[in-house]
Amino acid sequence: MTTVLIVEDEPQLLRALQINLRTHGYHPVTATNGTSALTAASEHRPDLVVLDLGLPDMDGVQVITALRTWSQVPIIVLSARHAPEDKVEALDAGADDYVTKPFGLEELLARLRAAERRSIPAPETPVVTTKDFRLDVVGRKAERHGEQVRLTPTEWKIVELLVRNPGQLVGQQQLLLEVWGPAYAREAQYLRVYLNQLRRKLEPDPTRPRYFITESGMGYRFEP
């Protein structure tokens, strides 16, 4: 079931969207302001976001900008702002579509379906094998020289983000947001602690990592 995060501060409209989307086979998750929207996006990992721009604590464009630092979830703006400059600002910030209020339900549903078709799921990397260890990312099983290695759920989240992007830098902020959520966006020490744990469990020499590489001040990368 496709999860849709609805961000709307008008209670009647929020309730109507929630009921109608559920009726049409979606799983709605709701938020009434920008802060709770970012938290919900981190916790629920929605497949789509429907976002009002006029929120009580921050502008919707700020929500789009914050989401785009760590997520490529399709975002459909649903706003009473009709000016071309408002649409351009939202789309430039990273929105995928823009629907003006008042709107027809059938049009919104069609936009949701189109956004679903355009979204590309993350490529699967079910098994990673090196000369020192084997990781089954989907099954969450790790082996080192034929022996089982226990990784914590948090360690698996970090591993998954890194091994799905082999050889590529994954930024500190992206890791913090995707693993721990917006409240931990500045807690870089969390990453240092967990990366050291991973190296002790998987690297042949944790003091000279071969696979889980630190890019000082920027982030980390996995070298298969």
Rank of each mutant, 00 (worst) to 15 (best):
R111S: 08
Q62F: 03
E107Q: 12
L38W: 02
S36Y: 00
V49I: 08
P84L: 14
V50P: 09
H27M: 12
P46C: 11
A80K: 01
G60D: 00
L53R: 01
A83H: 15
Y98D: 04
A95N: 05
P56C: 00
A40C: 14
S79D: 03
N33G: 04
P74V: 07
D59I: 00
V49M: 04
I75V: 13
F103T: 11
T100L: 07
T32D: 08
N33M: 05
L108H: 02
E43M: 14
L53Y: 05
L112A: 04
V99F: 03
P102C: 08
P74K: 07
V73K: 06
R68I: 02
R22S: 15
P56Q: 05
V77K: 00
K87A: 13
D97Y: 00
L109M: 03
A93T: 03
T35E: 06
G34T: 04
N33D: 12
G104N: 12
V88N: 08
V29C: 09
D97G: 03
S36P: 07
G25S: 06
N20H: 14
K101Y: 02
E85N: 13
G104Y: 12
D92R: 15
R22C: 11
A41L: 11
Y26C: 06
G25A: 09
G54S: 03
D59N: 14
P102Q: 00
D47N: 15
H24K: 10
G60E: 00
E43I: 15
D57E: 02
R111F: 03
P84N: 10
K101R: 11
H44I: 10
A110I: 07
V50T: 11
P84T: 07
V49R: 02
V73M: 09
P56I: 11
T32C: 10
L105N: 04
E106F: 12
Q62E: 15
L105S: 07
S36A: 14
E107N: 13
G104H: 08
V49D: 01
L53E: 00
V99H: 04
Y26F: 11
H44L: 11
T35H: 09
D47L: 10
T32R: 14
F103E: 09
A80G: 13
G34I: 03
L112H: 10
E85T: 14
A31S: 05
D97W: 02
S42C: 12
V29Q: 09
I75N: 08
T69I: 04
Q62H: 01
A40W: 09
T69D: 13
S71M: 10
A80C: 01
R111E: 04
R22K: 15
T32M: 08
A95S: 02
E106Q: 14
A93P: 04
L67T: 00
L55G: 01
G34W: 04
L78C: 06
P28G: 14
I75G: 08
P84V: 11
V29W: 07
Q72G: 09
E85S: 15
P84R: 13
F103S: 06
A90D: 10
P28T: 12
L55V: 01
L38N: 08
P46F: 12
G94I: 03
G25P: 06
A83F: 08
Q72Y: 05
H82C: 09
G60H: 01
A66D: 06
V29M: 09
T100F: 04
A95Y: 00
V49Y: 01
I76M: 13
A93R: 05
P84A: 10
P56Y: 00
T39I: 15
A93S: 00
H24M: 05
A110Y: 12
P56A: 02
P102G: 06
R22A: 15
